[in-house]
Design a protein around this nucleic acid. Structure first.
Lengths: 109, 109
DNA sequence: TAAATATATAATTAATTACTTATATAATAG
DNA sequence: CTATTATATAAGTAATTAATTATATATTTA
């Protein structure tokens, strides 16, 4: 339990992944949205998502050509995630930003 | 706030430091006790404590030849620490262990 | 004051992590 | 069926982190 909790905290202890979790607490997101929000290469984003998925903190589902990620509320560590989210500002605006820039529409996702 | 929270989580995302914080939530501890508990070299322990101190998660005070570490309940992140501690087993037994082995007495601290 | 004890710091090394580029796979549109 | 779009994976590199050994500092005791 201590080791596995430490591993979850290590995952959350990266600002990109922590922000991803914050975003996912508001909306499901596809990879291309994260790429826009974080101004990071697509493989870098996919690799962060892979770690979150391996730890079962997020779920993925395919929707046509997109892979949609969502918070896994069934996770043993979901309550910890919710507790942690109390300590970061809302990430909702980051989604609004790309919607306002019209980027979200452009990406068709 | 997101970055600083991520940094705190990164610090807590190491099993040695997480266990240290768990121990400190029960008792103040000196460095030599951590050395016994974690079977790790003294410099390794001091370096972990340094990181926790730099982040102001712990306080140190000198008591004769010993440096006593304690949780800093004044920290902005103390509430986060308390939330996180709900997800790990009590570390109290680790102190009991070394007391039973008589080591704590032997060390005179 | 010299020896012993407790702790910290510096320097090095080993291990881990994050990111990049290149490539592969899967779905859709023409 | 080919081109395009979305995503994943692999391989390599750079950066960061954890641990070790050696040494320095501070306190206590003889």
């Amino acid at each position: 339990m201590l080791d596995s909790t430490a591993n979850i905290l290590k995952l959350l202890g990266d600002k990109t992944r922590l922000s991803m979790i914050g975003l996912l607490s508001h909306n499901e997101c596809c990879v291309c949205e994260f790429v826009e929000v974080f101004q990071m290469t697509q493989p870098a984003i996919s690799q962060h998502l892979r770690k979150l998925k391996d730890a079962k903190l997020v779920n993925e589902k395919r929707k046509g050509q997109w892979i949609i990620y969502s918070l896994n509320s069934e996770s043993e560590y979901y309550p910890l995630v919710l507790d942690v989210l109390k300590y970061i500002p809302s990430q909702a605006e980051k989604i609004n930003e790309i919607e306002q820039k019209g980027l979200r529409g452009d990406l068709n996702c």
